[in-house]
């Protein structure tokens, strides 16, 4: 089955000098994880995203589309990156997701892809 692993983190955690050091550490861990997933043949896709201030949201209502500067939801944690993996089942997906590095307060969501 294919699973999307969505990474939500408080963006301000990476601010400042200490934040940047933490970011470097976490990026290195992502590289290592991605390399391992590729070696196992589980990795379909994945990437980090630029921070949420670069987001543009298109809102459709009453047949009209309007643009909104920013992410759709005003929350502290923002979608910061994702992995798309192919593994046997939820247990395997969860064990990969547990290895996704996050900063304190980070959340990792695991969602199976819809198969039609």
């Amino acid at each position: 089955m294919q699973y999307m692993i969505l990474i939500y983190e408080p963006e301000d955690a990476y601010a400042g000098e200490a934040g940047q050091a933490a970011l470097q550490d976490i990026v290195a861990k992502h590289m290592a994880l991605a390399a391992d997933l590729r070696a196992k043949g589980w990795m379909k896709d994945g990437s980090g995203l630029q921070d949420s201030s670069t987001a543009t949201t298109i809102i459709t209502k009453g047949g009209q589309q309007t643009l909104h500067d920013g992410p759709f939801a005003e929350t502290r944690e923002h979608l910061g990156g994702y992995y798309l993996i192919e593994v046997a089942d939820l247990d395997a997906a969860l064990s990969v997701a547990r290895r996704v590095p996050v900063i304190d307060g980070g959340k990792v969501e695991v969602r199976p892809l819809a198969v039609y």
Partner: peptide
């Protein structure tokens, strides 16, 4: 059914 919960006894480490 949807999330692919395996019908297995988990491995001892789990």
């Amino acid at each position: 059914a949807g999330a692919g919960v395996p019908f297995e006894v988990p491995g001892r480490q789990a």
